[in-house]
Design a protein around this nucleic acid. Structure first.
Lengths: 190, 190
DNA sequence: AAGCGCATGTAAAAGGTTACATGATTAC
DNA sequence: GTAATCATGTAACCTTTTACATGCGCTT
């Protein structure tokens, strides 16, 4: 399969594109996000950085301190910018995790207006499909059924509805921002 | 430490405790849940069943058909019931995934009233902490900051708030039921 | 006769966590 | 002197996906 692989690596690359930092920095930053994107261990972060370095997507600069251990600051290269751009514009795989969605959302600055809207629309479709699947299963299941299943369905539907509303709202806002161009056009026509 | 060990295996065991089924059945059932608990592959399901069988937590019965391939129906054993009971009452690890929470929620029938409330309370605490972490990071970050970050924070806060409200609501309902404990119809015994 | 749905299974590879090792400095 | 923070890194392990193999019966 073409995409989906090494999402985490590209996400780290995205962080570096916003600001050069060390592996330690990256860990702290991710922790500050709560569990939005999980809390990967050093065993995941350092190898990711080494890989990016090997591929020439980042460069390394060692900074020495008098009273602290030296730090390895990674910075993105032009090749890295290009790779990041390619990755972030790839559509999420069907059934991609919420985490995959949030990772790209966090790097929204690297998306064009159109790219962001597209990303949100795709997520919206997935959430709609998730809701449909739940509704169908709930319909098929006889109502005398398991309590845990009912709770989980309700949970899923509640979260999905909220996310959907959030997405719709944001999409509408972003589309309105694109609107003035057309309005100008319409204005001239009228 | 994102998840408890072998959560998935125990989750499958939980499915079997609700109804004997084959690996193929399990896959279909999980798919019908949308992405509530993910869509594990056969490469995850079959080995899990083999492991359960080896540990004596399930038994196997092969059912033959005339026009279809034979199916291997797994049923939970008393030892399996016991192991399931132990597992499901263990508190989720700090930072456990939403998926881990939902898996236990789906098996809520196997939790006592107290056990379910405890489970929900622990999840509530985690969501509260997640929100606190986000608020703090948002506060520390200067407002001229990155657009993607703002979007992701807003997303995280919105989802978290909804989940929190859902949890509070359910906990309140269950606590209200706690006194009129009522007749628990355990099993189908007459 | 080709292809699909059923149904099981396994091996290789990918990706992550856990747990450790190192070593300097600051705080109690 | 002992713990904690800073900072990097590796190796063993665990789990899961990917991708394949098998084989039957039904449909086109």
């Amino acid at each position: 399969m073409p995409t989906g692989n090494k999402d985490f690596r590209y996400f780290i690359l995205g962080l570096l594109s916003q600001q050069p930092m060390s592996g330690y920095d990256a860990k702290q930053y991710l922790e500050s996000l709560g569990w939005l994107v999980g809390n990967p261990s050093f065993g995941a972060i350092y190898p990711a950085l080494h890989g990016l370095l090997e591929d020439g997507l980042v460069t390394l600069q060692v900074v020495f301190y008098e009273n602290k251990p030296p730090r390895k600051i990674y910075s993105i290269t032009p090749a890295g910018e290009h790779a990041l751009d390619e990755w972030i514009h790839q559509p999420l795989l069907v059934g991609a995790s919420t985490r995959a969605f949030v990772m790209r959302l966090l790097l929204a600055t690297h998306l064009s207006h159109e790219g962001l809207v597209t990303h949100l629309r795709r997520r919206r479709q997935q959430v709609v499909e998730q809701q449909a699947a739940l509704r169908q299963t709930i319909g098929e299941t006889d109502p005398t059924n398991d309590n845990g299943q009912r709770l989980a369905f309700d949970y899923g539907m509640t979260i999905a509805s909220t996310e959907l509303a959030w997405l719709e709202d944001l999409i509408a806002t972003l589309e309105a921002q694109a609107w003035p161009v057309s309005q100008e056009f319409i204005g001239k026509g009228t």
